[in-house]
Amino acid sequence: MQLNVYLSGEIHSDWRAQIIQACQKLDLNIVFSSAVTDHDQSDSAGDQLKQANTDEGQGFWRDHRSAKVNAIRTKTMIEACDIAIIRFGDKYKQWNAAFDAGYCAALSKPYITLHSEDIIHPLKEVDAAAHAWATNVDQVVETLTYLLK
């Protein structure tokens, strides 16, 4: 059996690499996908769509265009995955991760949330719809191992 796992959420740490490396070390049959994790690249994803001779600047419309371009990738990958791992970090509020969790729930796509205990309360609805909650990468890898063995 092979799993297609989408890694969503926080981009300021190496949690994705940790999961991928641990799964490779265990020789798990998993194909990983992810949103763009380079913040500047993600923020500028829609720059090529800016209309000539407009005064759109770097504000709302730039973010709006980039969000739409990024959504093409996110939507496609979530729909194609077997399971999503959705990471909420401690430093920033990942509204995009919450949106991804909601999209998974709407599609009846299983997902695991990954976050520390100190943000249980603000994520209670997200966690309630999740199929599992992990506080560390090892728990995620153990769960993926169980699913494939």
Results as ranks from 00 to 15, higher is better:
39 H>S: 11
16 R>Q: 12
130 A>L: 06
117 E>G: 10
28 L>P: 13
44 S>G: 06
19 I>P: 09
126 V>R: 00
33 S>Q: 08
42 S>E: 12
47 D>Y: 08
121 H>Y: 15
88 F>Y: 08
4 N>S: 07
58 Q>G: 01
26 L>C: 06
18 Q>N: 07
72 I>C: 05
141 V>C: 07
128 A>R: 05
62 R>C: 06
67 A>L: 10
145 T>N: 14
32 F>L: 01
44 S>D: 13
12 H>S: 13
136 N>Q: 15
18 Q>V: 04
77 M>S: 05
51 Q>L: 13
60 F>C: 03
73 R>F: 07
61 W>F: 07
61 W>Q: 04
83 I>L: 14
68 K>W: 13
49 L>A: 14
9 G>M: 07
133 W>C: 05
127 D>K: 06
123 L>P: 12
34 S>K: 11
18 Q>F: 02
5 V>F: 06
41 Q>A: 14
112 I>A: 04
18 Q>M: 03
90 D>F: 09
33 S>T: 15
1 M>T: 07
97 A>P: 13
97 A>K: 05
98 A>W: 12
77 M>G: 04
109 K>Y: 01
83 I>Q: 03
105 A>D: 00
45 A>T: 12
84 A>N: 03
90 D>G: 11
127 D>I: 09
110 P>W: 01
12 H>R: 13
35 A>T: 10
142 E>D: 15
127 D>H: 04
3 L>H: 02
101 A>C: 12
14 D>K: 10
37 T>C: 11
104 C>A: 12
101 A>W: 01
89 G>C: 01
12 H>V: 02
51 Q>R: 09
118 D>A: 10
88 F>H: 11
105 A>I: 00
140 V>K: 04
4 N>E: 05
55 D>Q: 05
99 F>H: 14
